[in-house]
């Protein structure tokens, strides 16, 4: 449980970073993030998994190391929560959007983002979702959340987002 909690905080911190960048719109509003950070030590990790089943889990992004497409151990719980949600909501559908940082060619990064999305889809299916509930696509490096040439930006852009359809 502790691990899951840590990963959620980490992701939240990354999302918080993203919200500081002027150009790109951030999907999760900053107040929600700070709230999670503040309350998390008291009630760890269970919130996203065991809240109302009808609601899609709040955490919707997973992050990857450079040129890696496997879902990281720290992020598995996020994907599993979505798999669980999809298995309990047969009508729900999601789109997994893969992204990559700019270090590579645009086409290589498109393929890398696609592979990241595919791996998230595989884990969703292992967690109970049906393949027909999941569409995958990649933006490659074309839609960076953060546009600077540094690791703090790149780490936000190496990402797969689970988006409700």
């Amino acid at each position: 449980m502790k691990k899951i909690f840590l990963s959620i905080v980490l992701v939240n911190l990354l999302a918080a970073c993203a919200s500081e960048t002027p150009k790109e719109a951030v999907e999760e509003p900053t107040p929600a993030v700070t709230e999670t950070e503040a309350t998390a030590p008291v009630e760890p990790a269970q919130a996203p998994v065991e809240t109302v089943e009808a609601a899609m889990p709040e955490e919707r992004s997973v992050y990857f190391p450079f040129d890696v497409d496997a879902v990281q151990a720290a992020d598995r719980a996020i994907v599993q929560a979505h798999g669980d949600y999809l298995s309990k909501n047969a009508d729900a559908k999601v789109r997994v959007e893969g992204n990559a940082d700019e270090r590579g060619s645009s086409e290589y990064n498109l393929a890398l983002g696609q592979r990241r999305a595919n791996n998230v889809k595989k884990l969703l299916i292992l967690s109970g979702a049906q393949a027909s509930q999941i569409e995958t696509m990649s933006f490659g490096e074309e839609k960076p959340r953060c546009a600077e040439h540094n690791e703090s930006c790149w780490s936000q852009n190496r990402r797969a987002d689970i988006v409700a359809k």
């Binding site: 086409e107 393929a111 595919n118 990649s138």
Partner: peptide, 27 residues
């Protein structure tokens, strides 16, 4: 096709193109 359809390039005789599809999983 589902996934990415990308990286088109023409053959020298202009009769066909090569491209990249991820419809069968990897690119």
């Amino acid at each position: 096709f589902p996934g990415s359809n990308s990286a088109p390039t023409w053959s020298p005789d202009g009769k066909k193109l090569a491209l990249v599809l991820s419809r069968d999983g990897s690119s």
